[in-house]
Nucleic acid binder design. Structure first.
Lengths: 236, 236
DNA sequence: TTATTTTTAGAACAAATGTTCTAAAAAATA
DNA sequence: TATTTTTTAGAACATTTGTTCTAAAAATAA
């Protein structure tokens, strides 16, 4: 239950449920609208007045819900973190295989792209909001361990060959650097559709593994991406 | 001859050359000071008044030399581009080998790091200054061709194995994505010394090639980085 | 209903910021 | 030296921006 008590029609006089997705509370509309504006124009270019205008409320009202502009950004950051956690929590290590991991990668790329501005302006945001900086840094070790675990598992399932600890560490670093900045790169170079960008870069990131895949691994890899990447037919 | 005529003591009364590096013109001091401040605090956080104060001049004077703040950024951008061009121009394809290419990579990383803010805030800068956006985009194809040429050459010299066109393209994309954003990543995660960061990430980027190196190539690779990366002993 | 709380709009505020203007100082030139 | 140009400092300006304040409106509770 994420709905706020305010503005949601749940008075005892209403005998039936009202369609919930139409009646968004002011706070939720601010969050959603700011996300779109931040993604499109950048945090610094978007003022509280812009957001308020787009929502159709006064900026005074906006500052009633979010006294500081940073509060809006923090809200978005937490939304992404929770989304990522939920995804990881849904994993079942028993039945995990390469295809499912690629699927998860693609999904996490889409999830991040939804809050593109957070990644594209991360250094600036991090400089301004210490809470975010500390939290993200603390995430680093966890992420490295998660990836290490995935590699071990894939090796155990016979999808990738053995590799040294150093190679594992390198691929992990490459992977996360790509994961953090593919949106910035695409912002600079491409002008394509969102879903296609996600697929393109998730494919590219997962291709870091390609030299280490076994024959079976390559089959799985090609099968997974074959249907998703139209052009650039696999030809290994 | 990059010195401006202004403020440089070259009056006919002076019989001998004055030490040139001490007497920097106001314009040059603005450029150098702004570079340091932008790198440390970010473009948006640094105002013309901050720069003027740090240089020791009035902000009115600063605006005399650079009427728009963007002019300063543009100046920095051109400096980096010229630096990169000069580096490429100095190459001699005849005698090129893996070590020299790694050396060039490392050097270009150091060059970029000198103007860290340009890369770290690239998307924002690009959004604000169309001239930079267009120029950088036009660079993309050139860079891809350059990298393709390097790979061909290394293959011809027996340092790397053959690879498909797709693999070449992927490595090229990985390489440039890393080259554009390793500074952002290091800004978020590490708090180390500049030169060490450059070595660390240049090493990491070049390691993209590792799975494709021949035995001889690996020897060269390890020899090159062995002396430069203290920890993380090669153990392939 | 009446009282209380929440929400809203818009004015008001204060600080910051890029830029322009003005006049004096310094430097260069003739 | 006299004159012209360049450079400089600092005031002034216009705009923007995040935030606070106030009072009315709306919703909720008693």
């Amino acid at each position: 239950m994420l709905t706020t008590k305010k503005n949601v029609k749940t008075s005892s006089k209403e005998p039936f449920e009202v369609i919930p997705e139409v009646k968004l509370g002011t706070k939720e509309r601010i969050v959603e609208t700011s996300r779109v504006l931040f993604n499109e124009h950048g945090v610094e270019a978007v003022t509280v007045r812009h957001i308020a205008d787009a929502v159709g409320i006064s900026h005074g009202n906006l500052c009633y819900h979010f006294p500081r502009k940073e509060d809006i950004i923090l809200r978005h950051y937490h939304a992404v973190v929770e989304g990522m956690n939920a995804q990881v929590a849904a994993w079942n290590p028993e039945h995990l295989n390469l295809s499912m991991i690629l699927e998860a990668l693609l999904k996490s790329y889409e999830l991040q792209y939804h809050h593109k501005f957070l990644m594209v302006e991360f250094v600036n945001i991090m400089r301004r909001i210490p809470e975010i900086r500390e939290h993200f840094r603390s995430l680093f070790e966890v992420r490295k361990q998660q990836f290490g675990f995935v590699l071990m598992l894939l090796q155990h399932k016979g999808s990738i060959k053995g590799m040294s600890e150093i190679e594992r560490e390198r691929i992990s670093l490459h992977n996360y650097l790509m994961g953090d900045f593919w949106m910035s790169e695409s912002e600079i170079l491409y002008t394509g559709e969102e879903a296609e960008k996600c697929r393109f870069y998730a494919h590219l990131a997962s291709a870091l593994l390609y030299p280490y895949l076994t024959a079976r691994g390559r089959k799985e890899f090609d099968a997974f991406w074959g249907s998703r990447i139209a052009h650039e037919q696999s030809s290994y």
